[in-house]
Simulated assay, not measured.
Amino acid sequence: MTDTQVVTAAEPILSYLTDMDGVLVHEDHLVPGADKFLAELRANETPFLVLTNNSIRTPRDLQARLRHTGLDIPESAIWTSALATATFLDEQRPGGTAYVVGESGLTTALHEIGYVLTDSDPDYVVLGETRTYSFEAITTAIRLVERGARFIATNPDPTGPSRDGSLPATGSVAALITRATGREPYYVGKPNPLMMRSALRRIGAHSQSTVMIGDRMDTDVVAGLEAGLRTILVTSGISSRESVEQFPYRPTMVVDSVADLVGSTPNPFT
């Protein structure tokens, strides 16, 4: 079932950005219809990019994870907050140095842009997500920020999921460092529209002709809206139809899942 606002823009839909968890997969299981939706985009030769705020895995690792669920998505169609952060740093300070708290998804992205990872007077402290935050690493990050390193975080998500319940994520650890240093990080990932814009550049797309599909009003929808995209909220993840009314902005369309979009691409608003 769909709930569509009046769409005043007559621009055709030429490309898609879509969140991963809650939209295409849910706890390592395929969201029913996600495979058919992506197959339809391919059949229509519609460019798309899968986005995730999780910075732990490289695109190759994520490709393998998605293939295990039944989705065959190329590495080139996966855009992480780690890649967006690396792109941002490469534009801001090419060939710089960073002290990283994170895993291979983040360290690999920074190595690929030519950054040197060091704890000796780095240009940046870059905080990402990791399964096991080290107290020693966090202490080092605090001291480096106190000494003048610029503070960057891949995303503001406070918690992440696990089989046993919530885990502290990048936003929570960033808050700890901020409380200790008085320095706020610059968050690159959603809901920063910067991640949307870097994703658009990745596939050569324009905001006016691109749709953002997500399951969270407070990250996916607001990031898409602020980047000038039309947005579709799916209720197969975090946000519900009822929760939409709690926000001062609305998605262009609300559907139960991406399965509801099958047969309506490339333009579900017509």
Score class of each variant (00 low, 15 high):
residue 198 S to L: 09
residue 35 D to W: 10
residue 202 R to C: 08
residue 117 L to C: 03
residue 133 Y to I: 01
residue 52 T to V: 08
residue 251 P to G: 10
residue 38 L to R: 06
residue 17 L to W: 00
residue 129 E to H: 13
residue 55 S to L: 13
residue 43 A to L: 08
residue 228 G to D: 08
residue 109 A to W: 00
residue 210 T to G: 12
residue 262 V to A: 13
residue 4 T to I: 06
residue 21 D to T: 03
residue 141 A to D: 11
residue 74 P to F: 10
residue 243 S to R: 14
residue 65 R to H: 09
residue 95 G to W: 14
residue 170 T to S: 04
residue 80 T to V: 03
residue 223 A to N: 04
residue 145 V to I: 15
residue 102 G to T: 07
residue 7 V to E: 11
residue 140 T to I: 11
residue 180 A to F: 09
residue 171 G to Y: 15
residue 166 S to F: 15
residue 30 L to F: 14
residue 170 T to I: 12
residue 252 T to Q: 03
residue 256 D to S: 05
residue 114 G to W: 01
residue 182 G to Q: 10
residue 5 Q to P: 09
residue 206 H to W: 04
residue 28 D to Y: 12
residue 200 L to Q: 05
residue 46 T to Q: 11
residue 27 E to F: 13
residue 268 P to N: 04
residue 56 I to W: 15
residue 77 A to F: 13
residue 185 P to M: 00
residue 125 V to H: 06
residue 250 R to E: 07
residue 189 G to R: 07
residue 210 T to C: 10
residue 59 P to Y: 12
residue 158 P to C: 04
residue 137 A to M: 14
residue 190 K to L: 06
residue 144 L to E: 12
residue 64 A to Q: 04
residue 164 D to R: 03
residue 188 V to G: 05
residue 7 V to C: 07
residue 112 E to I: 02
residue 191 P to K: 02
residue 57 R to A: 02
residue 88 F to Q: 01
residue 126 V to L: 12
residue 60 R to A: 07
residue 107 T to W: 09
residue 53 N to V: 08
residue 122 P to S: 14
residue 257 S to D: 01
residue 23 V to G: 00
residue 185 P to L: 11
residue 128 G to A: 11
residue 207 S to I: 00
residue 73 I to R: 11
residue 124 Y to A: 00
residue 247 F to T: 14
residue 18 T to R: 04
residue 158 P to N: 06
residue 55 S to D: 08
residue 246 Q to K: 06
residue 88 F to R: 00
residue 141 A to H: 11
residue 247 F to Y: 15
residue 33 G to E: 06
residue 266 P to D: 06
residue 168 P to H: 00
residue 149 A to P: 01
residue 270 T to I: 11
residue 173 V to L: 12
residue 211 V to F: 00
residue 51 L to K: 02
residue 127 L to R: 05
residue 262 V to K: 09
residue 261 L to N: 09
residue 256 D to V: 03
residue 172 S to A: 14
residue 237 G to Y: 05
residue 46 T to S: 11
residue 163 R to M: 09
residue 228 G to C: 07
residue 67 R to W: 10
residue 128 G to I: 09
residue 206 H to P: 00
residue 23 V to M: 02
residue 148 G to M: 12
residue 134 S to F: 03
residue 8 T to G: 02
residue 152 I to W: 15
residue 138 I to N: 09
residue 210 T to F: 05
residue 159 T to F: 15
residue 92 Q to C: 08
residue 155 N to D: 02
residue 108 T to W: 01
residue 206 H to D: 08
residue 266 P to H: 03
residue 144 L to A: 10
residue 126 V to A: 07
residue 124 Y to G: 00
residue 253 M to Q: 04
residue 40 E to T: 03
residue 176 L to N: 02
residue 223 A to K: 08
residue 5 Q to R: 03
residue 96 G to V: 11
residue 126 V to T: 09
residue 15 S to G: 11
residue 77 A to P: 01
residue 12 P to S: 05
residue 104 S to H: 06
residue 254 V to H: 06
residue 139 T to R: 15
residue 138 I to M: 15
residue 115 Y to V: 08
residue 226 E to K: 14
residue 211 V to Q: 02
residue 233 L to N: 01
residue 69 T to H: 08
residue 206 H to E: 11
residue 26 H to P: 06
residue 241 R to W: 14
